[in-house]
Nucleic acid binder design. Structure first.
Lengths: 228, 228, 228, 228
DNA sequence: GATGAATGAGTTTTCATTCAT
DNA sequence: GATGAATGAAAACTCATTCAT
């Protein structure tokens, strides 16, 4: 009964394909539930039973798709980082001028942090819980994301737009950390600023520190004229 | 030999004094051991038995000086923050010019972060583990420390040294977060910079963003001419 | 084979029913083991691990069916008291004359005490260990049981069979305590009497004290002519 | 310096005597404190540290006079029983008629139970906690006390005052248990009776069951005419 | 003789993981 | 493949007992 299909599939991958689809579906189910729980409690406060209940499946099923509780954490991390990898290029796409692209990128970065600020804080909280191996994967992805911003700065530098002696990578990291700061100090910042205002305020700091005075006004005009 | 002293001590509180000294000694012992362990693992991965072994005492003794495991975490936090409260004013003392004082303060801040960079990272990791009450104490101390830097910026603003429209508190938080960044991204930054160089590079970013062009050169001269 | 049944079960609650049956079976298992252990040691001397071993299950399983060690004690109490509530009415059922019914009831009471004399002694020992709430439940059941005997006495009193001025409730309590005495002083009484003899001896005491001389002989004839 | 005295003591027992006095004083201190604590909590809920605090001495001192926590419990039991052994004969002394002496004895028994009803309940609660050896001592003392009442009944029986076939020992035990009942069901009885009334009510029960009708009125007159 | 800080075995309870159904 | 009952190692914490002062 099983193993029908095959009509003209040269290498019958039906069962394997079904398996792959199911696996990815189950994993998404689990990761989604885990993310929801991890935003309010720590990884150790989330029991696998709680997780099963939240996901609407059984513990047994979780272990069919995860070999250990720690795996779930890694998938949550990768899922969060994946969002940056998807949404940043999307926001920066098609913008010629590197500084304008940087502005668009940073604004998008802040918006993602804001959309899931608990998730961003989670990353700082639980990264030590990851396995050696998992941590490396996460760090690699983070470097990749940072590089999206660094590339703009490097390009601008190549065009002679930046002040002599600025450290491209350091600036990129500064931007990333200042974006995360929105999540880390959310309790303080969110009642004084709006995300958009916050993003532009921080962009103003970095651009003033990096862009030559000659071209600076051109970019400052792009940033909201708001306070700060 | 016993029962000597008393020479002219108005209210001989020997036993109580001895007890106080022992308590503070034991607590330091425990906190030191806990800090050592927490630098390599999370709070949940550190069992009270491990801690006792590390401290070279028994579990029972730990509970004679702490009423719950969570207390230990709070003491570790307070111990770390205490260092800022002690060393920052020390470093900034006697400096007239507010921006120069800010420079001294930030450099000191980075140095403390560097001395105990695992401890600084720990603070981000475990703050959610603190009790409601403990978290409040810790936040209050952190605000107090940030305010030491904010005060300089505010004073400089009062002297008309800053660019119109800068947000004093945001800049102070930026400095604090950029100092913590040294700990958070230590794996990346420490192989490219020296702390001193790092501190000055970040100071250059913030000063350029905040100080009027007219007086900026005066302060930039104080920052190492190094790379960046 | 699976998914058969359903023949005409309106709301097939199979899983829930299975769960209920298992829960009650496990609880009985645990209570039985606990009762066995509590007969030889106190509640505090019985560790949950001991209990698990005695019950032939794991500690984890115990906590799946009990939310705290104290719950076990309450269930043991309720289990013991339940036996009185079941067996007393059974023994008294269908007997018209209230004094004859009282005799049957007391004899049954003593027999239950004898069957599980360690359990009866246990009740005196551990009632203070119960929670406020548990104690109330237990007391309510005990009052209910005592009332079964009190009702006979009250009825007899209504028929003018009792000596003027007897306190119905006190007599009922006397009977209960004298029955418990068989358990409490078992080490002494059991080597001098047989339960049946003991029960009749105590009945003779109470009846002589309560029943009018006129009708007393009628009832004394029902009591074993044995010694005493 | 030590070892003075001796003035004319043939066998210098000074130091030993001092030691004996101190030991007995310390033990009384400890037992008194333990009794106070045990009336409100169970033996396991009373920690040796609590006890030391209550007694106003140190844990070390307790272990200088007790070799284990369990010893304390035995001493508390013996102290309670000692009171019966002292006060019962005192109350019964000089009364010629055995039944009158029994009345006096039972009333005294109830009064002692009432004075320390928590202590009496304690005896039922904690007797299983005693060592094999301790339990034997306690039982022996209890038998001795019961015998004080039994002796009266036996004497009365010898004088032909009792109904044929009464079991002397059983009646004595009934009296003891009915006296204890005042402590065991104190929550119920104390709000319906006064101790004196209670004692006489129970005496009336036992005397009616044991004393020949001919002489009964004489004794009933001695019992309060109150209700019951 | 008195003290009380120190000890560590033992307690209750939780929870990641397994495996028979 | 899915389930969830069962497991038992490990955790936080207590407290009777010891012993240096």
């Amino acid at each position: 009964m099983a193993k029908q299909a095959d009509l003209n599939d040269p290498q019958d991958d039906g069962p394997a394909a079904i398996k792959a689809v199911r696996t990815s579906w189950r994993r998404r189910q689990i990761v989604a539930a885990a993310t929801r729980l991890l935003e309010t409690r720590g990884f150790h406060e989330m029991s696998v039973n709680d997780l099963a209940t939240e996901a609407g499946i059984s513990v047994g099923t979780i272990y069919q798709y995860m070999s250990a509780k720690e795996d779930i954490l890694l998938l949550v991390f990768l899922d969060i980082l994946e969002e940056y990898r998807r949404r940043l290029p999307e926001a920066m796409e098609g913008i010629e001028d590197p500084i304008e692209r940087l502005i668009a990128g940073f604004r998008a970065y802040c918006r993602i942090v804001d959309d899931r600020h608990s998730a961003a804080a989670l990353a700082y909280r639980e990264s030590k819980t990851l396995s050696e191996d998992g941590l490396e994967q996460v760090m690699a992805l983070e470097v990749e994301t940072t590089e999206l911003l660094a590339a703009c700065i490097r390009e601008a530098d190549g065009q002679g737009v930046l002040i002599d002696g600025v450290d491209v990578t350091l600036l990129a990291y500064d931007l990333v950390v200042l974006a995360h700061m929105w999540a880390l100090k959310h309790w303080y910042l969110a009642e004084r600023f709006d995300v958009e205002v916050y993003a532009d305020a921080q962009l103003r700091v970095i651009l003033r520190a990096a862009v030559r005075g000659r071209v600076l006004p051109r970019y400052e005009k792009l940033l909201g004229a708001s306070r700060v």
